[in-house]
């Protein structure tokens, strides 16, 4: 613990210095509708705690959870299918890679047109942003399984299912966690973008509404909350990962 504190210290000092700089700059500018100071944002966060925590945070989290859930289920499924069948892999892999160059956020208004203000337009943005990174990372993990280990199991007479369950599944776990740690913040971003473009609730929606009221601190407050939630979720994932994969890096 002490060691962690020591290694994190330089970063903490830097963050603290930047916050002070921001505070002084904002106080000097004295234009809270453009650049609110950190203390003003915290104050706003406290004032708005009831609507933020009871209505908007749950709305965003719902979109994130549904979108991420869909991405995980279908992303894992597609990765496993691609690994099992070279034909599927050859057909899908180039499409998946190319699709990463499409600016998903630019398509988002179209989804609002299709699905209206229901949560599904937001869910679709989240899925589009997270689905392919999960698929590719897990697929690469499956391909990285050592061929000698597969062969060893083959000499024991293992079936394809046994090779998958006893070798591929455990060895792909680190890749899966990496994919999740990447996808969780992305899915929150996706949900917020979706809400920006059209929604009746959610932190993205709330932030946008505050812009129309020229309430700078009100714009920042939900963003700070979003970041805090993303950091917290990634930290929880990291903790679970450490518990589940004690052997990481031992290969």
């Amino acid at each position: 613990m002490k060691k962690t504190c020591k290694t994190q210290l330089p970063a903490l000092i830097l963050v603290f210095a930047l916050l002070i700089l921001w505070q002084m700059g904002a106080m000097h500018m004295d234009a809270a509708y453009i650049l609110p100071s950190p203390t003003q944002i915290l104050q706003k966060l406290w004032e708005l705690r009831v609507p933020l925590f009871t209505a908007h945070l749950p709305a965003t989290m719902q979109v994130t959870a549904i979108g991420l859930g869909i991405s995980i289920v279908f992303g894992l499924g597609l990765a496993i299918l691609m690994d099992a069948s070279p034909a599927v892999s050859r057909a899908v892999y180039p499409i998946v890679i190319t699709s990463q160059t499409i600016p998903t956020t630019a398509l988002a208004p179209l989804f609002v047109l299709w699905f209206g203000y229901s949560i599904w337009s937001k869910v679709l943005v989240t899925v589009l942003i997270t689905f392919f990174p999960i698929t590719i990372t897990v697929y690469d993990g499956l391909r990285a399984v050592r061929i000698e280990m597969i062969e060893l199991l083959q000499t024991y007479g293992a079936s394809r299912t046994q090779i998958f369950l006893k070798l591929k599944l455990p060895s792909v776990l680190p890749y899966f966690f990496s994919a999740l740690k990447m996808a969780v913040p992305m899915s929150i971003v996706g949900a917020a973008i979706g809400e920006w473009l059209g929604a009746q609730a959610g932190l993205g929606y709330f932030s946008r509404r505050m812009i129309t009221q020229l309430d700078g601190a009100g714009v920042f407050a939900p963003i700070v909350l979003l970041s805090a939630v993303a950091i917290l979720l990634v930290a929880i994932l990291g903790f679970i990962e450490k518990k589940v994969i004690r052997w990481r890096g031992e290969q």
């Binding site: 050592r146 000698e148 280990m149 060893l152 455990p170 060895s171 776990l173 994969i245």
Partner: peptide
């Protein structure tokens, strides 16, 4: 029974 050069013990 086949034993390759690397021990190939599964680390997990």
């Amino acid at each position: 029974g086949y034993m390759p050069q690397k021990d190939l013990l599964f680390p997990w």
